[in-house]
Design a protein around this nucleic acid. Structure first.
Lengths: 237, 237
DNA sequence: CGGCATAAAATCGTATACAATTTAACCGCC
DNA sequence: GGCGGTTAAATTGTATACGATTTTATGCCG
């Protein structure tokens, strides 16, 4: 009776130790939207699923709560985070705030080989976009995030990189919740434009493109308060 | 034999539950520099000090490691973080990256009552600066950080606020390690200038002042590689 | 038949127990 | 006296145990 968390089966290729491995697996499942916001993650279930004790399961869930991907309610348990519309806005505001700066620094330091790597990422992203099937969709989601993470990595600031990892992961949750266009894709073309601008060293426009890109993603959301119809209003005309 | 962590005794006024309380107490001790970088924080010692089991002590230490204030080495234990010069640079680079943006947003939203609150904070900071004694020094350190945190709080973005909390706390560690001028103070006058600029709605200069302010703090650091003299070089002319 | 009180089950919070690893102490040996 | 190796102590990693809280099930009564 391992309830609803069976979506976690994943290729455990890692060599990591203990709770980290579990944390990473669950994070991946959340980011790839195999786990929906609000899903309960009971400590026993997680532990059983990964064949470890509740101790480690609990540690993993705690870790995820620090990243904002899981919310733990005292004496009630852990749930895949269900970001509020306000939280969603804050996440994208944060991205608008930091990504231009990251991009600037990345553009200043980027090497030709890294440009190649970025382009390769873009190509892969495009390939996945034209493929069909669940697993391609998941890979596409991941790839579109990886573009932004790659820039953070190139910027060379490990602290900003970690922060971006958090923001990208939480963005995925937000899109899962409030995204409208089934083409969930995060503007593949715009990624290309940004790379082009970087390549011709036009940092100014690269930053502007990035800002627009983030706004486009956010524009695809429907962040109106869903007032959950708690009362009988749900059945009155 | 509760080794070196006795610096943790603090007014436990909190009403929180479990590990959080311990985490907060240790964080405060680190930020106020009662605990020096590199100090070992053994799980048993922490547990005994707070009269809880190792389970909770461990959870608290894990939490602090996610904030970058503690580094845990596998099978070796937890230590107050000892940021490298590079890490220190990254922390201040991150602050230069985000604080102007936070300031902008804060200035846009600030209310008169919040301006008052900021000024009050400034006053308190000044008062502590002219007082002497260990505990005044600690309070001063905290107050100078609180100015930056207050701005983040006014900006209304909880995510940026959390991030700033992390950055300010880690900055305190960096200053403890690499700060030179015994006047550890984080430019009290500059805080005042920034408030003034905000008050006359001159956001442009407020941002510039903030950037300079952060650079001034960083300029007071000596971030040269201390190559620890591992060899006999330490005793050769 | 539905609502409320009570009891049972499930789940979380924390402590303790035991295995694995690291650190130190000790001791014979050069 | 100093050095390497072996053993004991200390510390961490993980599992299990037990009390507390929440959730669900049960049954009584209106």
């Amino acid at each position: 009776m391992t309830s609803t968390v069976d979506a976690l089966q994943t290729t455990s290729d890692s060599t990591e130790t203990g709770a980290q491995q579990i944390r990473d697996a669950i994070r991946e499942a959340i980011v790839e939207r195999r786990l929906s916001p609000g899903t309960k993650l009971s400590e026993s279930d997680v532990g059983n699923l990964f064949n470890v004790s509740r101790t480690l399961a609990r540690a993993a869930l705690q870790a995820l709560s620090y990243e904002g991907l899981v919310s733990v309610e005292k004496n009630r348990g852990a749930f895949v985070a269900y970001p509020s519309p306000d939280e969603a806005r804050h996440i994208f505001a944060a991205r608008r705030l930091v990504e231009p700066g990251i991009l600037c620094e990345a553009a200043r330091r980027i090497t030709p080989s890294e440009v190649q790597h970025l382009k390769q990422l873009l190509l892969e992203e495009g390939r996945l976009m034209n493929e069909r099937g669940q697993s391609a969709r998941r890979a596409e989601i991941k790839a579109s995030g990886d573009f932004h993470l790659m820039l953070a990595s190139i910027s060379g600031n490990l602290i900003m990189q970690r922060f971006m990892e958090e923001l990208v992961a939480r963005s995925s949750l937000v899109i899962a919740l409030y995204g409208q266009s089934s083409a969930s894709s995060c503007g593949h073309a715009e990624h290309g434009d940004i790379i082009a601008a970087i390549e011709r060293n036009d940092i100014e426009t690269a930053c502007h493109l990035m800002l627009h890109h983030i706004s486009h993603i956010e524009a695809d959301l429907d962040l109106r308060e869903r007032k959950s119809f708690g009362l009988k209003e749900a059945f009155e005309p």
